[in-house]
Every structure is written in C-alpha cells, then in structure tokens.
Amino acid sequence: MSDKNQNPDRAGSYDADGLDVPTYRQDAPAADQPAGSTAASARPSGGNDATTQFPETSGTAATTGAFGRTGRAEPQEIPPAQPSAPSAQPTYADQDFAAPGGSTAYETFAYDRAQEQPTTVAPAPGPASAPVAPAPAPVATAPVDEADVRDHRRGTIDFGLFIIRLMLGLWLILEAVGTFFRLGGNPGLSGLEADYSGYLAPEGLAIVIPSLQLAAGVFLVLGLITPVFAMLATIATSFTALHELTTSGAGIDVFAWPESVWLSLVLLGSSLALQFTGPGFVSLDYGRSWARRPLLSSWLFVLLAIAGGVALWWFGAGINPLA
C-alpha cells in the first residue's frame, strides 16, 4: 500500500480462504466497502477501542462464512465496559467473593470418599498474637511441722514457765517421797493419817493425797501431758489448802493465816497458772497445742479440778465445802 492511499486495502480472494474480511475506514466508510463491514464512526460511544461489535448475520452468510464451519462457535456480542468514571478501573469488594450465607468456612471433598461426606475446614486463624510467657511452676516445699515452729517473740517466757514447773513439781515430789519413806523428820503415812483423823476416811486420804502429789510432780517437771497432771496438782493443793485453813482456826481473817496456809495457796495458784499458760516449749509437750495456745483444754481441766476437789472433800473428809 502506497503513501497516497489512505484507505486500507481490500482483502483479496486469497485471504482467509476466499472469505471477505470486513474492513473499515477511520473517518467514513469507503464507497466500495462491502456489505457487512462496520465503520469506526458507527461504533457505539463509550466503547473500548479494542472491542468490535460484530453485526448479526442471517441467512446464507451465517452458514457459509467462517463461522458456519463445523465446530466453530457462533459470534457473540461483547458488551462495552461502562466504568463510573473515565479511565477508571472496575473495583471489587470482598463480599463479591464471599461464600453464600456470610460463612467463612470452606468445604472440601476427598476423591476417595463419597461426595455426601463433606469435611468442614475451619478458617485459618488470624495473625498470631504475642507469645504469652508460661506461668512459673510452683516450687514444691516440704511440709512444715507446726511442732517445729518457734515464735522468737516469746522471748524468755518458755524458760520462765519451765522454772515454775520445776519448782512446783519438785516440791510435790519431795513432799510425797518424804511421806512415803519418812524422810526429813516427816512422820510418814501414820502421821498424815493422824492429821486426817477428824475426817470421814483418814486412811484413804493419807494414801490418795501423797499419790496425787508424786504423780503430778513428776509429770510437771517433765512437761508431759501437762493439762491432766496440772489438774491433779490442783486437786491435791486445794485439799491441802482447805485442810490447813480448817485446822488453823483463823477463819476469814487473812492476816491471822499461818504460813502453811499461804504456802498451800501459793502452790494452788501455781498449778492453776500452769493450767492456763501451758508448759511452754521447754517441755516434752512442745509439739502439743496446749504448749503454744492453750484455751479449751485449760477451762475443761480447771472445771474437772474443781469438781475433783469438791468430791474429795465430800466423800473423803465428809465436809461440804460449798456450805
């Protein structure tokens, strides 16, 4: 084609196996343009230059042309794209590709299983969060024996309780041993029986009182089963204090009381004090609750000691101490 020829060459008979190829001119259709060609000005406005709208064919042209061959598809009309703004590209939203129903789960089918058995795959988790440091494992500690716990704020209390126990216990032991074996000028059981001669059962009292003194004295010195033997010491000293007060004849005049009455009262008060304070840690009862915080046992055994002293006076001496 020469430079002077502004119209495209018409296809010859040798092109496209003897078929006419539609041609067009940019400005206007040529005079010799064959039927079926489309001019550029006749194209719909707003269309894409790369898209050509093929005219519908009918009759013999549709069956004898290139598209009339066996296996060839019918010509389809390609609609022009109409963007919302010039040179704007179509945009897509995520919901255009979302699964029906708004679900994010996906179903997959295995080839070796029936299609009726879908396998639901959970959606992939979101971005991994920062790793959380595991909690430290608890450190196993050996059980603490409460008996081994020492309260250092107690100071010298335990040592003071040991001295009280030692003095009271030694006095009870020496008094009982002197009575049984007549040591230190003690008249022994016969002399004690003579002292109790005015009571209902002097022989029994002469054996019961020193026996209570000896048992209570030994266990108080050791600090063993302290509530029980402090109770026995309270019974013995209370009987001795009442006996001394009765035989003195002083009555309720405290200034006329002899030293034997005051000594018996001091011993009675010491046994009651040990009942409420406990033996302390300097004892064989250091692991017991009454060695640290005596409460219920103290009141219980004090009531038993009072009941025992009343019973001893009632049945041993034949005197009602409550009268």
Rank of each mutant, 00 (worst) to 15 (best):
D3L: 13
P8D: 03
S13V: 05
S13Y: 00
A30E: 12
S41Y: 04
S45D: 12
G46W: 05
T52S: 02
P55Y: 00
T57P: 00
S58C: 02
A61D: 14
G65F: 03
G68E: 12
G68H: 13
R69L: 13
T70W: 08
T70Y: 05
Q82N: 15
S84M: 08
Q89E: 14
P90T: 07
Y92C: 10
Y92H: 14
Q95E: 13
F97D: 12
A99P: 06
A99H: 11
S103I: 12
T108M: 09
F109V: 11
R113T: 15
V121N: 11
A133H: 04
V144H: 04
D158R: 03
F159R: 10
G160K: 07
G169A: 07
L170I: 14
E175G: 08
G184L: 11
N186F: 10
G188T: 11
L189E: 03
A194L: 08
L205V: 09
A215E: 10
V218F: 10
L222T: 02
L224K: 04
L242M: 14
L245H: 01
T246W: 01
T247C: 00
A250T: 06
F255K: 07
A273P: 01
L274V: 10
T277W: 04
D285R: 03
P294H: 00
P294M: 03
L304V: 13
I306S: 03
I306R: 00
V310D: 02
G316S: 04
A323S: 13
